[in-house]
């Protein structure tokens, strides 16, 4: 139990490091938008998501309506529903409703990516550990960013913004080397995303991710349906 928690925490360390720099930027943004330090940290603690939070602060700063806030979060964060649904299929039987209600809070892109790359069924202890370290990084980074304003030179923060994307590539590329079905999905999704970005700029980035991911996953499922045992192997 404790071992699994520690294992999860360890797997969360790279995510924590990535989150530190991103949330630092978020903290700075909040202060620029005239939010208090407490509000900045409060948003990070209760939301634990980058794009949704940045958009949310925009709505707050513009004095938008609550409906706008809800729609904005819904569109940008809808991908988490897909991730939760995917993870719900990989849970250990010890995952009761209470654990689900707590762990559901911590499904982020990166936590989801690491969790879904695990071979064994996911236990509550592992998931709590995997959420804990990134949560600390996210909260601490926001606090430091909000308190310190802009300490780091812009040149450093610009370069650090590549970290999360580098992590994403390190997650999706290695399994795709051996599995051409995955390579198909990755290339198709990337291509759709590029086309959407340049030719359909009116579609918000959160919504674009949902559309591209759904189209490419559905097409791959039609052309290359996977068997139960094959799923287990390829997720490693």
């Amino acid at each position: 139990m404790r071992k699994k928690f520690v294992r999860g925490m360890r797997h969360g360390v790279p995510i924590m490091l990535g989150y530190l720099s991103v949330s630092f930027g978020f903290g700075v943004l909040c202060i620029q938008q005239n939010l208090s330090i407490l509000a900045a940290v409060g948003i990070s603690v209760t939301n634990l998501t980058s794009a949704g939070q940045v958009a949310g602060v925009g709505v707050i700063a513009a004095g938008g309506s609550m409906l706008e806030m809800i729609l904005c979060q819904l569109v940008i964060n809808l991908r988490y529903s897909l991730m939760s649904l995917s993870l719900s299929q990989r849970l250990d039987p010890s995952f009761n409703l209470m654990h689900r209600l707590f762990v559901g809070y911590g499904i982020t892109d990166e936590i989801f990516a690491v969790a879904s790359s695990q071979d064994e069924p996911l236990t509550p202890a592992y998931m709590y550990g995997l959420i804990f370290t990134p949560f600390i990084g996210w909260t601490l980074g926001t606090l430091l960013g909000a308190v310190a304003g802009d300490i780091m030179p812009a040149s450093v923060t610009a370069a650090l913004s590549l970290m999360l994307y580098g992590m994403f590539i390190a997650i999706i590329l290695p399994p795709a080397k051996k599995n051409h079905k995955l390579l198909f999905v990755i290339l198709l999704s990337a291509a759709l995303s590029v086309v959407t970005h340049f030719f359909l700029p009116m579609i918000s980035s959160g919504f674009a991710i949902i559309i591209c991911a759904l189209i490419s996953s559905v097409l791959a499922a039609v052309f290359f349906p996977v068997e139960e045992q094959e799923r287990g192997e390829a997720q490693s």
Binding site: R79, L82, M83, L85, S86, Q89, D109, F112, A113, S116, A158, A159, S161, L162, Y165, F168, I169, I171, I172, P175, A176, K181, L182, V185, I186, L187, L188, S189, A190, L192, S193, V194, H197, F198, S205, A208, I209, C212, A213, L214, S216, S217, V218, A220, A221, V222, F224, P225, V226, E228, R231, A234, Q235
Partner: peptide, 29 residues
């Protein structure tokens, strides 16, 4: 089998769509 296949592919598709083309503008250059 269809839904399971979609759910299996989704993480890779989501991460790929989030990375490209955003990674090419991440630093501002």
């Amino acid at each position: 089998r269809f839904i399971n296949s979609v759910l299996y592919y989704i993480p890779y598709a989501v991460l790929s769509a989030m990375t490209f083309p955003a990674i090419f503008f991440a630093t501002g250059s």
